[in-house]
Each structure stands twice: as C-alpha cells, then as structure tokens.
Design a protein around this nucleic acid. Sequence first.
DNA 1: CGTTGTGTTAACCCCGTGTGAAACTCGCGC
DNA 2: GCGCGAGTTTCACACGGGGTTAACACAACG
Lengths: 231, 231
Amino acid sequence: MIDVVLCVPSCEGPIRKALEVAGVSPAVASSGRLAEVGALEPASGFAGAVINAAGFPFNDAMNLCRQLRHRTTSVGPIILLVDHYQLDDLTFREDLFDDFVVGPFDVSELATRLRHRLRRAGNESVAARVVHGDLAMNLETYQATIAGRVMDLTYMEYELLRFLATNPQRVFTRETLLSRVWGYEYYGGARTVDVHVRRLRAKLGEEHAHLIQTVRSVGYRFGVPEREEEG
Amino acid sequence: MIDVVLCVPSCEGPIRKALEVAGVSPAVASSGRLAEVGALEPASGFAGAVINAAGFPFNDAMNLCRQLRHRTTSVGPIILLVDHYQLDDLTFREDLFDDFVVGPFDVSELATRLRHRLRRAGNESVAARVVHGDLAMNLETYQATIAGRVMDLTYMEYELLRFLATNPQRVFTRETLLSRVWGYEYYGGARTVDVHVRRLRAKLGEEHAHLIQTVRSVGYRFGVPEREEEG
DNA sequence: CGTTGTGTTAACCCCGTGTGAAACTCGCGC
DNA sequence: GCGCGAGTTTCACACGGGGTTAACACAACG
C-alpha cells in the first residue's frame, strides 16, 4: 500500500515531483476545508500533509494546521511551504507544523524533508514501488507480492518482471528484453527469455499467469489483455 | 540564563547572526572531537547543536552526530548545515539529526529552524532504543540483546547491525553498506561485509541468524521475510 | 608480548542461470 | 479433418559466479 500525503491547495511542479521521489502519492484538497479533507482520506489515514502556505491566505493555512492537529485521527507530520517573507509569521506557531520549506521549492530538499519527517514519525514504508493491479514490487526491499502473497523471486526474475511491469501493455521482442534487462552487450540465446517468463508465470500462480501474455511471433507483454471495444 | 548551542566547526557570518536572532549563544568546537565538546559544555548542558557538514569531512560530521546521540547527557536537537549536493547522503541517516538547512545559509531560515527545534525539543524525543522483534539495541549503552540474551558485539558489528535494524526490510548492496557504515572514503573489499555479516549471524545464534537475509546478487536485508502490507 | 578487533585471502559449495532438445500448440493450406 | 512447419512451452542438466566459511595478517591497546 502506498502512503498517501495530503496536499493543499495543489500539487504541481516540484511538489508533485518531490512526492514521487519520496515514494508517496498525493491527495489534493484544493479548498482546505475539513470536510474536503475528510472525503479524501484513505482508510489507513494520511501519512502526512504538505500545505502550501504561499498558495492561499496564510491565516487559512494556519487554521487548517490547527484543525488537522485537533482531529481524532492523526495526519502524521505537517510540512509547510512558505515564502521567505512569511518566515517571521511562523514564530510562536511552532506547534502547528513539523517542518517547513522556503520557496522557491527545490525538489531534492522537499523530498528529503518529506522522507525525514515520515521516517522519524515511525513510518518505515516510505519506498519507491511499482504497482500494477494485484502486483506490487517494492524497489527498496526487493520484495514482490501478488494479491498480497509474497513471491520469492530470484534476481533475474525480479528484474525481468520489474521491466515488464513498469512498461505495461507494451510488447517487447526477446531481443529487446535481452538488451534492456540482461544488458546491452549480452549475447545469448532468445530461449533464455522464454524460460524466465515461464518461471515467472509459475511463481505468479495459475490465477495470475496471464499477466504476462505471449504475442506470437513478436514477444511478450505485461498487463491484462485489452479487450477490443465492441460496438 | 541564555541557552548555549554547540557549533561545529565554526560560527561565522550568517550562522552567528542566526544564533543571535534566535537568542542563543554559541560554543564553538573547531575540531569536533568529543573531548573538546565536553570541555565546552556548560553545567546545564547544551540546548542544541549546529553542525556545518559542509565545513569539514562529511563522514566526520556523521560520526560526531552519532557520538553526540550516544552521550548520556542530551545535547538537544541537532541541526545540520549541508550543501545541496549532500542531500542524498542524508537518506538512511534520519536518526542522526533533527533538522537541516541547505546552503547558501539564510539567516532567517536558520534562525526560524533553530527556534522551531528548540521549542519543540521537549515533546519530541529521539528513540534511544531500536527494537525489532526479539532484537533490542540500547543506543546509549551500546548493548544489544537478542531474545533477552546479551550479545557481546564489537564496534563495527554493533554499527552494522544498528544500520540494518533501523532500516528493516530494505536491501543494501555491499557498496552502500561500506559507505554508510564504514564511511565514505573507505576503500576496501566487498568481502569485508560478508565476513561481518557472518560474525553477526553467529552471535545472533542459529535461531535468529535468519534475521539477516542474503539477497543474492544484490546484498543484505534485515528482518523477517514477512508479508508487507497490512495497515 | 598476549589479547582483541578488523580486514584480506582463498578454498569450497551451492543456487541461479542458460542451453539444447523434446513436447506441444497454433495457424495455415489442402 | 489432416499434415506440416514455425513458434512456444516445458524439462533436465551442466556450468559458473556469488556466498559462505575458516584461517591468516595486522594494527591497536593494555
């Protein structure tokens, strides 16, 4: 499950990018009303909040922080985005937020602060992932799960599945797969790919084996088969 | 009485200015040696520490942080000053510092962060222990116990286990471990890691040896291969 | 000088990987 | 339907590289 971070009032440019880098996904509340926030909240709650105090009236931002802090369910760390001239306004409001970034917002700094506060809040699961349907691959733990079940993949199996899953629906020839997954200067038989696909299908289980489809005389493709639209 | 903040390795320009604005006085330790730090310490202890990681070898800065955290008397919040290119190096070291500022250092931002952390210092305590399943590590006494039994770990063993245990489930390559645990400029064979892992596993005992898992052709990981998710 | 901690070297071993061949399936023409 | 060939799946096996392990070298420290 990917952690969801509340974003107010928007999530664009470097902010979105930083969330990606930090391995969390945004839930955007444009108004910042508590009702809107509540509607966006996933069952597991928010992992944190990024509030762009430079993006709407400063007092509204402060009020939102206060309200978030008073909620029964925690939102995790609150990170404030402010302009330089707003720095003084933060004094005596230290309890309302956990960290802040001064604009213009730098992607790496924002991402680092996000990670820092999330991990310090005891959140271990901040990690880059590839998720596609029932398949989830955690790139930092090298663990892959299908429908919640852990698959015990070997190195090459993992790399192949990761490549396919990060490019769903696209068909790759065996030669392409060999060069992209195994390496450019790799020189080996094309049957190698077949065998690895077979092993992957076996570990995916009968139910999910079809996630890797054979495209006859072309190659392989990852994803659920797109049904031709009828009509 | 004015709070004293430890400054390493110097306190000039915007840094001094920011301390003034924040209303604290500096104690400058130019070398960053623990002995020097101790000599500077007032009876009431330090209120916090500002460490300019851009001002001396990064690894020394990290070691200093670690040592400060291990002291029996608290130093309060640790604020790191870093260059932009050092941001990535902060990852996986979230427990060693409480906040950071990216150069070029801005007086108001630095002052605001100082105030913020000093004021929040009371309610946010750094976990002095790492606990994971049967493993418990006391960061102050350098003692580690597994299932209640005290393990007699050497320095490197302790540091390696601590690093792995504070980042459970995550896979680290030998190179990463060498740079993060041993140090940046460390240049040694990758087998070194293997051997230390082996010694750790031996001391963990047969029953718990599996806490450090080998991920073939990738590296090592700490934790039980539990299924993730669930939240 | 023993002791203890740390890093290196090299032998050993095992598992992941690639390969060839057999079995099988699909598409096509008759 | 039948036969055929190209393409794919499946299997068993050999090899090599990566991991484990023990023994050694060496520095630090008393």
